[in-house]
Design a protein around this nucleic acid. Structure first.
Length: 462
RNA sequence: GGUACUCUGGCAGAACGGUUAUGCGUGAGCCUGCAAAGCUUAUACAAGGGGGUUCGACUCCCUCGGGUACCUCCA
């Protein structure tokens, strides 16, 4: 698989000869997660599921930033401790992302649980004379890392002249950033430089290296993290270890609303909770994967609705396959193989989920075509089912299960309806159909038989 | 101001130096007791403007312009 690397601006082959090691910058836990977080994390969820479907081992680390001014501010405002705030929103995070059918990462390291590692890291930087102490804390000296700016393609001079960073007389250079902030306000930890807390960027350097080694495969996050966060991570890590940090930098585009980035100040943030309640996980995942990961995607009800239409086709396909019982069907192996290859080829080429989805929908469409023409049989439906299942798993989509009891009840009602229809008691037949509809069961009348499908309940549809 | 990304049909959105996918939408039809779902089929003078390279450009180069993001925290 090739991925476009933000740093080299070239496509780089992912080394799959051994475990693929991925570090994703997660969220700062001071508030509810929103659809923008969802997109980034869903992209990486599909990436890891794709690797795993190929039998490739992965090590997937996603951090929680649980020390940060925003957390502290919120804690003060609500008269709580920072820890109470962060643990509340970590819990909230898992509710949201379990709901989105995101597989749990190998590990979710927290900054507060890695203070030791962070301190050791800073000590190394000081030893190497790359960081220095002031009365406010420990700072990374940007001038000691000549390649500073290589990820975000910024020139140090430009940054200095256009700097909007508040002036701190203690710093040697306005661009220098804190790796340790001295402070008395809780939460604080003891350090060789005094009581305080780590800066933001240092945790990701320390934790990614701890769990994945000094040189690992993929480092990801939202595009907005390129500068300064990832730039600073590179500076810290590479000046500390002396070797290349991440092999590939993969950045996911923003979710916008009416063309604008979501932000608290504009007040256009869509929380996952809210979107999930209205649209469910499948539609959101389809939406998040509908464009190339590196590009922005605009959130709108219309697009969600479009994905709902597509999802209904997949549901239909799924139930047609379940109910397929013709003796023989049309030969389909070649088509399924071709579609499967298109799906994989798309993902292998810079993770083009949009093209992969096209293949996926084509498979559903072809299945529905066969069903419409009564050409879906036991043999070909099995082939399609296997491929569909593979794709559904990679994409993290799930058709809701139905219990055997419910199935029995449905079958019984369908038989009753058939009797009524045969006797031309259409009013009775329609009553039964309405009753099934209320159970979210939709009937599909074929020439020879009537089958049922269970539609996922989508609130926004009503 | 600097840097990055971006500008494709009503909408969404790919690939590719030489036939401009695909999906949604829309029209018509099939199926149906009627529906629904699904299918079939039709539908788009589509590439921000202007130059250039080329036998040929949406795809490469130049230039002008629009948009967004980042330059402070941000997925």
């Amino acid at each position: 698989m090739k991925l476009l690397d933000t740093l080299s601006k070239e496509e780089q082959e992912v080394d799959i000869s051994k475990k693929v090691k991925i570090y994703l910058c997660g969220v700062t836990v001071y508030d509810e997660s929103h659809i923008g977080h969802a997109r980034t994390i869903i992209v990486f969820d599909v990436l890891r599921k794709y690797f795993e479907s190929k039998g490739i081992g992965i090590e997937f680390i996603q951090n929680f930033t649980d020390v940060d001014d925003k957390i502290i501010n919120r804690a003060n405002k609500e008269n709580k401790t920072a820890e109470e705030i962060s643990s509340k929103y970590i819990e909230n995070y898992f509710t949201d992302f379990d709901g989105l059918n995101v597989k749990r990462a190998t590990n979710y390291p927290k900054a507060t649980e890695h203070i030791e590692d962070i301190i050791k890291f800073i000590e190394k930087l000081i030893e190497k004379d790359i960081a220095y102490t002031t009365k406010n804390g420990v700072y990374f000296s940007v001038s000691k890392f000549p390649e500073y700016g290589k990820l975000s393609k910024k020139k140090i001079d430009d940054l200095q002249s256009g700097s909007r960073i508040e002036i701190d007389e203690e710093k040697k250079d306005p661009l220098d950033f804190a790796v340790w902030k001295l402070s008395d306000k809780e939460p604080t930890w003891e350090s060789p430089w005094g009581k305080g807390r780590p800066g933001w960027h240092i945790e990701c350097s320390a934790m990614s290296i701890k769990y994945l080694g000094e040189n690992f495969d993929i480092h990801g996050g939202g595009r907005d993290l390129i500068f300064p966060h990832h730039e600073n991570e590179i500076a810290q890590s590479e000046s500390c270890t002396g070797i290349q940090f991440a092999k590939i930098w993969m950045h996911v585009g923003m979710v916008t609303i009416d063309g604008e980035k979501m932000s608290k100040s504009i007040g256009n943030v869509k929380s996952i909770k809210h979107v999930l309640e209205n649209w469910g996980p499948n539609i959101i995942r389809l939406f998040c994967l509908s464009g190339h990961y590196s590009k922005p995607i605009d959130y709108s009800e219309e697009l969600l609705k479009e994905n709902l239409t597509k999802w209904r086709q997949v549901e239909t396909c799924h139930y047609e396959l379940i109910h397929a019982n013709n003796e023989t069907g049309e030969e389909i192996n070649e088509f399924v193989t071709k579609i499967g290859m298109e799906f994989d080829t798309a993902l292998n080429d810079d993770f083009n989920t949009h093209l992969a989805l096209s293949a996926f929908f084509q498979l559903a469409k072809e299945t529905n075509r066969l069903a419409a023409e009564e050409k879906l049989g036991l043999n070909n439906s099995k082939t399609i089912k296997e491929e569909l299942k593979r794709m559904l798993e990679i994409l993290g989509l799930k058709i809701p299960e139905i219990t055997d009891n419910q199935k029995e009840e449905i079958d019984k009602l369908i038989i009753d309806r058939e009797k009524a229809r045969n006797g031309k008691q259409f009013e009775d037949a329609d009553k039964i159909r309405d009753k099934l509809n209320e159970m979210n069961i939709e009937l599909i009348d074929h020439k020879e038989k009537t089958i049922w499908m269970r539609k996922e309940m989508i609130r926004a549809e009503k």
